Simulated scan of single mutants.
Amino acid sequence: MEKDIDYSNSKLTPEKALQMLRSEGLDVTIEQAEEILHFLRIIANIAVLKYLNKTE
């Protein structure tokens, strides 16, 4: 999956995610950590949009 994502303004970089996942015993590659972060951002955006739609 080809994505050009700029992590420069993100607090959680793929490298940090990789360290966190490995500290929990998950052996993942940097590419897998990027995919996990991408998925989590999608889920977070959906949750925020659902919340905002409920409050209107």
Results as ranks from 00 to 15, higher is better:
Met1Pro: 14
Met1Arg: 04
Met1Ile: 07
Met1Phe: 07
Glu2Leu: 03
Lys3Trp: 06
Asp4Gln: 08
Asp4Gly: 02
Asp4His: 09
Ile5Gln: 12
Ile5Tyr: 12
Tyr7Thr: 02
Tyr7Leu: 05
Tyr7Pro: 04
Tyr7Met: 03
Ser8Trp: 12
Ser8His: 11
Ser8Val: 01
Ser8Met: 04
Ser8Asp: 04
Ser8Pro: 08
Asn9Asp: 05
Asn9Ala: 13
Ser10Glu: 13
Ser10Gly: 01
Ser10Tyr: 14
Ser10Arg: 08
Lys11Phe: 15
Lys11Thr: 07
Lys11Ser: 10
Lys11Gly: 14
Lys11Tyr: 13
Leu12Tyr: 02
Leu12Asn: 11
Thr13His: 12
Thr13Ser: 14
Thr13Asp: 13
Thr13Asn: 14
Thr13Gln: 11
Pro14Glu: 13
Pro14His: 13
Lys16Asp: 11
Lys16Cys: 02
Ala17Val: 00
Ala17Gly: 04
Ala17Ile: 00
Leu18Gln: 11
Leu18Arg: 10
Leu18Ser: 13
Met20Glu: 15
Met20Trp: 14
Met20Arg: 15
Met20Thr: 11
Met20Lys: 15
Leu21Gly: 06
Arg22Ser: 09
Arg22Val: 01
Arg22Thr: 06
Arg22Cys: 00
Arg22Leu: 03
Ser23His: 10
Ser23Met: 00
Glu24Lys: 13
Gly25Ile: 02
Gly25Glu: 04
Leu26Val: 02
Leu26Pro: 00
Asp27Val: 04
Asp27His: 09
Asp27Phe: 00
Val28Leu: 11
Val28Met: 08
Val28Thr: 03
Val28Ala: 03
Thr29Arg: 09
Thr29Ile: 06
Thr29Ala: 10
Ile30Glu: 14
Ile30Gln: 15
Ile30Trp: 01
Glu31Trp: 12
Glu31Asn: 10
Glu31Gln: 12
Glu31Ser: 10
Glu31Cys: 02
Gln32Phe: 07
Gln32Leu: 14
Gln32Arg: 15
Gln32Asn: 13
Gln32Ile: 05
Glu34Tyr: 02
Glu34Asp: 13
Glu34Asn: 15
Glu35Ala: 15
Glu35Asn: 14
Glu35Tyr: 08
Glu35Cys: 06
Ile36Asn: 10
Ile36Val: 13
Ile36Arg: 09
Ile36Thr: 07
Leu37Phe: 10
Leu37His: 13
Leu37Thr: 06
Leu37Tyr: 12
His38Lys: 09
His38Leu: 07
Phe39Arg: 03
Phe39Tyr: 12
Phe39Met: 07
Phe39Ser: 01
Leu40Phe: 15
Leu40Ile: 09
Arg41Thr: 03
Arg41Phe: 00
Ile42Thr: 06
Ile42Phe: 06
Ile42Arg: 07
Ile43Val: 10
Ile43Thr: 03
Ile43Phe: 05
Ala44Thr: 12
Ala44Ile: 00
Ala44Arg: 15
Asn45Tyr: 04
Asn45Leu: 00
Ile46His: 14
Ile46Tyr: 13
Ala47Pro: 00
Val48Leu: 12
Val48Met: 05
Val48Ser: 04
Leu49Ile: 01
Leu49Met: 06
Leu49Pro: 08
Lys50Asn: 05
Lys50Asp: 01
Tyr51Lys: 06
Tyr51Asp: 03
Tyr51Glu: 05
Leu52Gln: 12
Asn53Gly: 02
Asn53Val: 08
Asn53Leu: 09
Lys54Pro: 01
Lys54Val: 02
Thr55Phe: 02
Glu56Tyr: 04
Glu56Asn: 14
Glu56Pro: 01
